[in-house]
C-alpha cells in the first residue's frame, strides 16, 4: 500500500510543537473538570444526607442535637467546597461551572434548610458565601488569585452564583413541604402555619421574578406551586378540623392525649 510520508515525526515542526502545547492545555483542563465533577457528586450525596438528618427535627425532642450533628456534616461538605475553590484558584469560575453546579445547589438546599430550622428565616446569599472562606497553608510559592495574609498562609473564597442560590432555594421548598406534612402528622399545630407563610413568601418571590430568571428556575416553578398547594391544603385541614371544637378546649384535649400516649410508650 502507498503510505504517505509522515509529518508528525518531524519533531522540529513549529506546528507540531504548538499542538503539543495545546494537547497539554486541553488535557489539564479536562482533568480538572473531571476532578470537579467528582467533588460535586460527593457534595451532593453528603448534602442530601444532611437534609435527611434535619428532617428528624420534627420527631425528636432535642432539636439542638440534630442541628449540631447537621452542622458537623455541613462542615465536611464545606471542606469539599474548599477543594473546589482550590481547583478554581486563578481560574475563571464560569469555565468549569457546569462541573459542580449541581453539587453547589444541593449544598445551598441543605444549608438553607438548616438555617430555616434554626432561625425561621431565609438564609441570604451573603451569609452562605461568608462561610465559604478557607485558610490555606502554602507549601510552595503563592499563586495568583489568592490573597496573601502572611507568608505561608492565604485565604481562599468560593462564591455561590445567584442562579445556584435561586435553584437551591427552589429545591428547599420541597423539603419545607415535607417538613410541613410531617409536623401535622406529629400533632404540631403551629409549624404548619409558619411554614405555609414562609413558603408563600418564597412562592411570591419566585413569581415576582417570573421568567426573567434562568430557564432552570422557570422549570422548577411548577413543583414549587404544587408544594405550596400541599402546604395550604394541610393548613386548611388543620383549620376545618380545629373548627369543630372551641379554641379554649384544645389545650385540654391535647394534654390528655399526650398523657394517653405516654402510657403507650412501652409498646413497640
Amino acid at each position: 500500500s502507498v503510505q504517505k510520508t509522515d509529518y508528525s515525526i518531524n519533531t522540529s515542526s513549529l506546528l507540531i510543537a504548538a499542538f503539543k502545547v495545546f494537547q497539554q492545555e486541553l488535557d489539564t483542563k479536562h482533568d480538572k473538570y473531571e476532578r470537579l465533577v467528582k467533588l460535586s457528586r460527593d457534595i451532593t450525596i453528603e448534602s442530601k444526607r444532611t437534609i435527611f438528618l434535619l428532617h428528624r427535627v420534627t420527631s425528636v425532642p432535642n432539636v439542638e442535637e440534630v442541628l449540631n450533628e447537621a452542622d458537623v456534616k455541613l462542615d465536611a461538605v464545606r471542606q469539599k467546597v474548599g477543594q473546589i475553590a482550590e481547583e478554581l484558584r486563578g481560574e475563571d469560575l464560569y469555565q468549569f461551572h457546569k462541573a459542580f453546579t449541581s453539587g453547589v445547589q444541593e449544598y445551598v438546599e441543605a444549608v438553607s434548610f438548616h438555617h430555616f430550622i434554626k432561625h425561621r428565616t431565609l438564609i441570604s446569599l451573603e451569609e452562605i458565601n461568608a462561610r465559604l472562606v478557607f485558610m490555606r497553608h502554602e507549601k510552595m510559592d503563592t499563586k495568583v488569585g489568592a490573597e496573601v495574609l502572611w507568608p505561608g498562609t492565604c485565604v481562599l473564597t468560593f462564591q455561590v452564583t445567584h442562579t445556584d442560590y435561586l435553584l437551591g432555594v427552589a429545591d428547599l421548598t420541597g423539603e419545607l413541604m415535607r417538613m410541613c406534612i410531617s409536623s401535622v402528622g406529629n400533632g404540631d399545630m403551629d409549624t404548619p402555619f409558619e411554614l405555609s407563610n414562609f413558603l408563600r413568601e418564597i412562592h411570591d418571590g419566585f413569581s415576582y421574578i417570573g421568567n426573567t430568571g434562568p430557564y432552570e428556575v422557570s422549570k422548577k416553578l411548577h413543583t414549587l406551586r404544587q408544594s405550596l398547594s400541599k402546604v395550604e391544603d394541610a393548613c386548611y385541614t388543620l383549620k376545618v378540623r380545629g373548627s369543630e371544637i372551641p379554641k379554649h378546649m384544645l389545650a385540654d384535649v391535647f394534654s390528655s392525649r399526650t398523657a394517653l400516649m405516654d402510657q403507650d410508650e412501652g409498646v413497640p
Binding site: S229, E232, D233, C235, Y236, K239, V240
Partner: peptide
C-alpha cells in the same frame, strides 16, 4: 380554587 381553600384557613 386556591382562594376557596385559603379563605377557610
Amino acid at each position: 380554587s386556591r382562594l376557596a381553600v385559603n379563605s377557610v384557613t
